[in-house]
Design a protein around this nucleic acid. Sequence first.
DNA 1: AGACTAGTTGCAAACGATTTGCATTTGCAT
DNA 2: ATGCAAATGCAAATCGTTTGCAACTAGTCT
Lengths: 146, 146
Amino acid sequence: MAENSATGARPDDFESRLRAAGIRITRPRKIILEILGDKADHPGAAEIYRRAQRIDPSISLATVYRTMKLLEDFGAVHRHAFDGGPSRFEVVDGDHHDHLIDLDTGKVIEFHSETIERLQEQIADELGYDIEHHRLELYGRKRRER
Amino acid sequence: MAENSATGARPDDFESRLRAAGIRITRPRKIILEILGDKADHPGAAEIYRRAQRIDPSISLATVYRTMKLLEDFGAVHRHAFDGGPSRFEVVDGDHHDHLIDLDTGKVIEFHSETIERLQEQIADELGYDIEHHRLELYGRKRRER
DNA sequence: AGACTAGTTGCAAACGATTTGCATTTGCAT
DNA sequence: ATGCAAATGCAAATCGTTTGCAACTAGTCT
């Protein structure tokens, strides 16, 4: 059955884009796309696997990894390894942003600073480099002002 | 500029600091400290192991890892996982800096921008967070202007 | 609808990086 | 020198991730 989530998940978009690229939409992939559609957090492979299993227990972790790789190569997903930990994934929806990781909860907050972006470009330029991509992560804890 | 070390290594500094903290200076540790004294690059555990073995073939990889952990906890070393790869280490020598990683060679260039630092603080502040540490990595390739 | 086939799956085994249990050695204070 | 807690080397264990392979499907072509 086709369920429409009012929260903004539109896996159909992805499905058609993938189809257009000649990528098969299989049952596992459909489920994973559905999960990623949430966009609420930055789940790791194990978490995606757990959620997928609740929908279809026959899904394997290997397929989760393979699908994430596929989506990453396709450019639909970004992979992060915050503080050297296991990979966590994030759906790419156009706008670039950086991350503030809550050290207590692991929660990820997104932010963007055009000024910082420009400064990065400038620095790389002065060093004679072209930036391919970059990674800015702030690790912190909620301010506890009493 | 600061002081310069012609041949580079001054492990004695570290040794005394570690001794003062009640940490035993064993043969393997002495060797690893000597290697880290170079500060020329950002070697990974395997590379440190390789270099250590050239000095004393009996050193084990496990000890390299244990020692790096020790030094990291001691605050003498920082651990990086550039682009999700294996850990690479860097001696901490006071001044903070960020990194530009040459995607072709893996070489790491250090830089620092007080402006960026301040902007980061400001952003975290606006989000209600105190920064514990942060990580800014630029990944790029040497500009090939002909 | 049935058949075909290349792409995809699940499983388990393989993998690379790192950690750990344990018996043996060693630093270093006595 | 002696003693003992701490550190070592080794091998096995762990974690996250990838891969080989035989069985299975999605999408296509009748």
